[in-house]
């Protein structure tokens, strides 16, 4: 249970990082919080020849609001996100999902960028980012490109990141006035990976009619439930409405079976969670209208 040898690099600036990644190509892995990569290395499931440690790159560790948009540096610790007042008041969904990531010791090291780039099927943050319509800024030696959260994950632990590229920053737009969000998951024990998880964002107008909705399920990749979103648009929240939307959310979706749960179980769990998350989000949206 010891990692194999590797060449260690600890650059201080982003341009040093991209130069290293450009030069080393597929032989290099970046090291963020290490909460997923180091276990893989300890098991020798990962044996990178070069490790480029991002922990001393101060440029990647920031949390700010610009033009109403939340900007999160890739090296922001999950625990910092969870405890940030700006996040709690403006993007409570991020606070809510982060509390589900492992345990306090994991979140003290684990980073926002690491969780998103790792793209583990049952990870919470990727689902929240798709729901909030976040944009990811990817940086390589030649420049940057911006990818929607929804288009970032291709499948189980596979993303659009190219060799030589890193995830630099996440930009999360502020939810519209009258919005409420919710995340629900089923896991074996508190802090375990989700067997199934669902995030919902619902916006209501002054008359209590749904004007926007986003619903995302965990799966091999975060899956937007467009049919369910369409089903609630223009309607008033009700139990029957959300029951029907949840049914549509899981129609035809793909889930994996493993030793923890069968695919059938995950589909059923997603359906129940979708119903609850939508109802919860709508209730919070109504409450925000009542206050605002």
């Amino acid at each position: 249970m010891k990692p194999a040898g590797f060449e260690y690099h600890d650059p201080r600036t982003l341009s040093e990082v991209t130069a290293l990644l450009g030069r080393l190509g597929e032989d290099a892995r970046v090291l963020a919080g290490g909460q997923s990569l180091v276990p893989l290395m300890n098991f020798r499931l990962a044996r990178p020849a070069h490790l480029v440690d991002l922990n001393r790159v101060a440029e990647l560790d920031f949390l700010s609001v610009e033009g109403g948009e939340l900007r999160i540096g890739a090296m922001t610790r999950q625990r910092v996100l969870e405890r940030s007042e700006v996040v709690v008041s403006g993007w409570p969904l991020l606070r809510e999902v982060t509390g589900f990531i492992g345990h306090v010791q994991i979140r003290n090291r684990g980073t926002v960028g690491g969780s998103l780039a790792h793209a583990f099927p049952s990870a919470e943050l990727p689902v929240a980012m798709v729901t909030l319509d976040a944009a990811f800024v990817l940086q390589g030696e030649g420049g940057e490109r911006v990818v929607a959260a929804e288009d970032f994950v291709l499948g189980t632990m596979t993303t659009v990141l190219e060799p030589g590229e890193l995830l630099r920053e996440v930009r999360v737009p502020a939810p519209a006035a009258g919005s409420g969000a919710s995340f629900r998951e089923v896991s074996r024990r508190y802090g375990d990976f989700a067997l199934a998880g669902v995030a919902a964002l619902v916006t209501l107008d002054r008359d209590g009619v749904v004007t926007a909705a986003r619903l995302t399920l965990t799966g091999p990749a975060p899956t937007r439930a467009r049919a369910a979103e369409a089903a609630v648009l223009g309607e008033r929240p009700s139990e029957a409405l959300f029951r029907e939307a949840a049914r549509r959310a899981v129609a035809g979706i793909e889930q994996d079976s493993d030793m923890h749960a069968t695919a059938e179980y995950r589909v059923r769990a997603c359906e129940a969670l979708a119903r609850r998350a939508l109802a919860d989000a709508a209730e919070r949206a109504a409450a925000s209208r009542a206050v605002g």
Binding site: M1, D10, G34, Q35, V38, P39, R79, I106, R109
Partner: peptide
């Protein structure tokens, strides 16, 4: 366990509890 699950190796790094089995000493 040496993979972050059991917590037996928890130490404080700059005051924060972390898994010492998931950090390299150079870090």
């Amino acid at each position: 366990c040496e993979h972050g699950v059991c917590g037996a190796c928890t130490v404080l790094v700059n005051g924060d509890p972390v898994r010492s089995c998931l950090m390299f000493a150079v870090q």
